[in-house]
Design a protein around this nucleic acid. Structure first.
Lengths: 108, 108
DNA sequence: AAACATTATCGTAATATTGCAATATAAAGA
DNA sequence: TCTTTATATTGCAATATTACGATAATGTTT
């Protein structure tokens, strides 16, 4: 047991779940917000902004990248991170559709 | 270690992370989508819709309820579940703001 | 009351996540 | 080349999640 039964659900359901899961940690939310705040690609200093060790931050960045939420461009010996808009759009669209559907239904 | 360092992040960051985390499982996405599909509160038969045992579904419902994503009203010996719009609104607003910020910034 | 239906909780096994020290890798500069 | 700087990977311990059988709790029906 313990393993998620991924193959029992649709691709879309898994896609949304994977993206949401990647955002399901305050450190990763903090990384996203920092990328937004500096308003440009940032090379490196995310580690200094977070109360976490460098390997931990590196791991969180990896998960955000795997989920498609950020992009990382190699720039010399540093890496330039920035937000990948497309994936956030998928989420926004998804939630917008949910809210539109819900407001049209009478509930308890 | 292994425990998330919740207290090092802001309340808002933790709030968004908790909601996103609750959506970070395909079974819970499937539950939400089923609630949308039937277009009304549904009493019970969520278990029959999912490829999971009753205790597992009950646990997923609990997590969705804890995150504020669904509401459950007791109706006789059954329970009537439906989507809690407010929490989805929080998410939609949050992502809309992110996308608005990103589109205004030039990136790699 | 007894039987049934519905949902929750407990206990537990399997697996995943989180966090970090230590180490590796890769590019830049002296 | 050697050192420094920046990031990734490895390995491991602590904790969390997922899933389910067994059982409890609660209300309904007969």
């Amino acid at each position: 047991m313990g393993a998620t039964k991924t193959d029992h659900f649709t691709d879309k359901q898994n896609q949304i779940a994977i993206i949401a899961k990647a955002l399901g940690h305050p450190a990763r939310i903090a990384i996203i917000e920092y990328l937004l705040k500096v308003n440009t690609c940032i090379c490196g200093d995310i580690v200094n902004e977070l109360p976490l060790a460098q390997p931990t931050v590196s791991q969180h960045l990896k998960e955000l990248k795997n989920a498609g939420l950020i992009k990382g461009n190699i720039e010399g010996n540093a890496i330039c991170y920035c937000i990948d808009e497309k994936t956030f759009d998928i989420l926004k669209e998804y939630f917008s559709k949910i809210i539109l559907t819900v407001t049209n239904q009478k509930c308890c």
